[in-house]
Design a protein around this nucleic acid. Structure first.
Lengths: 126, 126
DNA sequence: CCGAATCCACAACGATACTG
DNA sequence: CAGTATCGTTGTGGATTCGG
């Protein structure tokens, strides 16, 4: 099954190790800010301050934190231009672009079911 | 573009309303536990206690909270069997199954880049 | 068995200030 | 401009309990 290595139980030692790593990665990546950053980064290259403006509502701190995490996991590449004032640019790596494909799917899903969801909420909130 | 309604700026009033709703939905759904619940729910039907066992590490409270949220947004259907002891079953709705497709993509991505990520982490942590 | 409510520890987060 | 550090607050989330 597609989700085998995200499931809880497994007999083989190697698989349980892969499982726990997969869960760890999933926990890192599957959060609002990380997904939004990847989405807005898109195909292009953005400076820190540009990202800050694009991803509305994110704080300086959250942006740096998530960028470090994404860099550590090899999803974004960080390029420092040794100018003054400094200029730091971020771009998606190959794996980052690959993940972005699935995030696009989530965005498309959101748009597609916007009406359904709004209606369902109204029904529920009574 | 695919993510138009998740981006920050928009001139049209209707679109900004749709935007903020989309962002709200995205914030609801794009979290670790919600995605894992949807993934494990899969095509089948699971009881509360079964879900609790499947989704390793989730607390009673987080499970109920996320299930309520998903029910409110119309992604899962909640069926209460009036027996004693009570039996409550959860299944994905059509929109839930649709979203699950994209989550499968994320899981596949995790498996595919497991090695890349592990290596990148080691490089970074020095 | 399921769910709601309470309490509270601790992490997340924002604001601020300071460096290169 | 970009990043780190600190601090104070908020709020998430676990443990527990009670009720249906």
């Amino acid at each position: 099954m597609a989700t085998k290595r995200l499931r809880a139980s497994s007999e083989e030692a190697d698989l349980t190790r892969a499982d726990s790593l997969a869960r760890e990665i999933f926990s890192d990546v599957a959060n609002k800010w990380a997904l939004l950053i990847i989405e807005f980064l898109g195909e292009g290259t953005l400076r820190f301050s540009e990202l800050r403006n694009e991803v509305e509502g994110i704080s300086h701190k959250m942006l740096t934190q998530n960028l470090r995490m994404l860099e550590r996991n090899g999803l974004v590449e960080r390029n420092v231009h040794p100018t003054v004032p400094p200029r730091v640019e971020y771009t998606l790596t190959e794996s980052g672009r690959a993940l972005r494909g699935t995030i696009d799917g989530m965005c498309a899903w959101t748009r597609q079911y916007l009406g359904h969801i709004e209606a369902s909420r109204r029904r529920f909130d009574t």
